[in-house]
Design a protein around this nucleic acid. Structure first.
Length: 256
DNA sequence: ATGACTGAGTTACTCAGA
């Protein structure tokens, strides 16, 4: 069972890259973020032609999340997080497939910090923590998957000292991530590679990909029962080198 | 400290991203 996450940075603009990667790697389940497309502009036909069923939550211009699955027996459980009726941003989608609860998320960036965007990020994090605690309490086979916009430790940043004041790396942000981990979630990629530099994002600027000046911000957090099934994982780094590619690379894990 | 890229919406430029 191969599960992947990919911040596509515009699902229509990246469609050729997305289809090429799907054909190449054939994951069973895919979480997508940053669709940047309204609900009716999701490229469903192309996704279906590639052999996938899809559930998605779009939004004009920004955000947007989707879950793709080869198994048509996929059921939507929830879209959006509880705790803020005013929040209209499409950032959370929960589906049940292959006896797994797949929670696809796109956590707010939060820059500039401090400021209202950073406040929104921390509040969103708090709502996610409440949802995550509930999932653990119910002992569900759950995975929190997606673009968390957090580098958890110094090892996850090419130059940590340059990022200390950034919304993705500020102490409050890292503390919120570690609070989530302390609930009982397992950071799958870091567990597989305890001491290695692993990046999932490279800026478009300054040849960041060529210099490997990256960040690890796309994560798989596994609930206890799912953690025991973790076999392998990695980043499809070469995809970041393709033409018209996203600034993120696809990340994947395999479960037994 | 700043700006360099990129997509979307719109159609000359802004906004947002990380």
């Amino acid at each position: 069972m191969k599960i992947a996450t990919y911040n596509v940075n515009g699902v229509n603009g990246r469609l050729p890259v997305l289809l090429r990667w799907l054909a190449e790697t054939q994951p069973d389940i895919v979480c997508l973020q940053e669709l940047k497309a309204p609900q009716e502009k999701f490229p469903l036909q192309a996704i279906e032609d590639a052999g996938y069923y899809a559930i998605w939550h779009g939004q004009k211009s920004w955000n947007g999340v989707a879950v793709l699955s080869k198994d048509p027996n996929m059921k939507e459980i929830q879209r959006g997080l509880a705790g803020d009726d005013e929040d209209v941003q499409s950032r959370y989608l929960e589906v049940f497939v292959h006896n797994l609860l797949i929670c696809c998320l796109y956590l707010p960036n939060g820059n500039p910090a401090p400021g209202p965007k950073f406040d929104y990020k921390l509040k969103w994090f708090d709502r996610l923590q409440k949802q995550a605690a509930m999932l653990l309490e119910k002992k569900l086979p759950a995975l929190l998957i997606g673009d968390f916009n957090v580098m958890p430790t110094d090892l996850d940043v090419y130059k940590p000292e340059r990022w200390v004041d950034d919304a993705l790396f500020r102490p409050e942000t890292r503390a919120a991530f570690h609070k989530l981990i302390d609930q009982g979630w397992t950071d799958a990629i870091r567990t597989l590679y305890p001491n290695q530099k692993i990046y999932t994002f490279w800026d478009y600027f300054r040849n960041a990909y060529g210099r490997d000046a990256g960040l690890r911000i796309d994560h798989f957090l596994l609930s206890p029962t799912v953690k025991d099934k973790l076999k392998s994982g990695g980043v499809d780094k070469h995809v970041r080198g393709w033409e018209k590619t996203s600034d993120h690379g696809p990340v994947w894990i395999e479960l037994s």
